[in-house]
Amino acid sequence: MKIKKTPKRMCTGCSEMKAKKELLRIVKNKEDEISVDLTGKKPGRGAYICKNVECLEIAFKSKRLERNLSSKISDNIYDKLKSEILTEQQKV
């Protein structure tokens, strides 16, 4: 019986390779809307980030998130992402 490989992705904030299930996917769709993809299956360009606010802040300050998604991210979108990560943390 084959052992199934767990897909790994790199966190945009801390640059650590982690299992895909441990990370949140931030996606930019064709209309250039940026949102958190909790299912991991939304169509569009994706970037992965740890489920903590510190990694989001590092990725935002160093503009890694903007480079990965190839678009400018406003402070409003950043605040929305931060609140969604905080609510996700409370669920866990």
Rank of each mutant, 00 (worst) to 15 (best):
D75R: 11
Q89R: 15
K20D: 01
A19S: 14
I26T: 06
S83Q: 08
I58A: 12
D79V: 00
E16F: 10
C50Q: 05
I85E: 00
K21L: 08
K18R: 14
R9K: 06
K61Q: 14
C11V: 07
E54H: 09
T87G: 01
Q90R: 09
E16A: 14
G13W: 11
I85Q: 12
A59V: 03
C11A: 05
L65W: 04
T6F: 02
A19Q: 11
S35G: 02
R67F: 06
C11T: 02
L65M: 07
K51I: 04
D32N: 15
K21Q: 08
V27R: 10
K82L: 09
C55L: 08
E54R: 10
D32Y: 09
E84T: 06
K5W: 00
Y48D: 05
K18D: 12
A19H: 10
D79R: 13
V36P: 05
R64C: 02
A19T: 04
L23P: 05
K5V: 07
R67D: 08
K2P: 04
E88P: 07
S74L: 07
K51E: 11
M17G: 09
S35K: 11
S74F: 02
K8W: 00
I77P: 04
E66P: 02
T39M: 09
V27G: 03
N29E: 07
S71F: 13
Q89N: 12
I3R: 14
P43Y: 10
Y78P: 02
I49D: 04
A19K: 10
G46Q: 05
K41Q: 14
K30S: 11
K21H: 10
D79C: 14
R64E: 10
K72S: 11
C11G: 08
L38Y: 11
M1Y: 12
K28G: 02
V36I: 15
K82F: 03
S15K: 15
Q90H: 06
L38K: 12
E57V: 04
N29W: 08
K41P: 01
K80S: 14
G40M: 06
K28N: 10
K42G: 13
T87V: 08
C14N: 03
K82H: 06
I73H: 02
R45H: 11
D37G: 04
K91L: 09
D32L: 14
S71L: 04
N68R: 15
K42D: 13
V53K: 14
T12R: 08
Y48W: 15
M17A: 09
A47R: 03
I26K: 09
R45L: 09
V92H: 14
C14L: 03
K51A: 10
S83M: 09
Y48A: 09
E84F: 00
D32M: 08
K5M: 09
Y78T: 01
C14K: 07
I34M: 04
T87C: 07
F60L: 07
V27A: 13
R45E: 00
C50Y: 05
D75G: 00
G44A: 10
T12E: 12
S35Q: 12
R9P: 00
A59T: 02
L81R: 02
P7H: 05
E33G: 01
G44E: 03
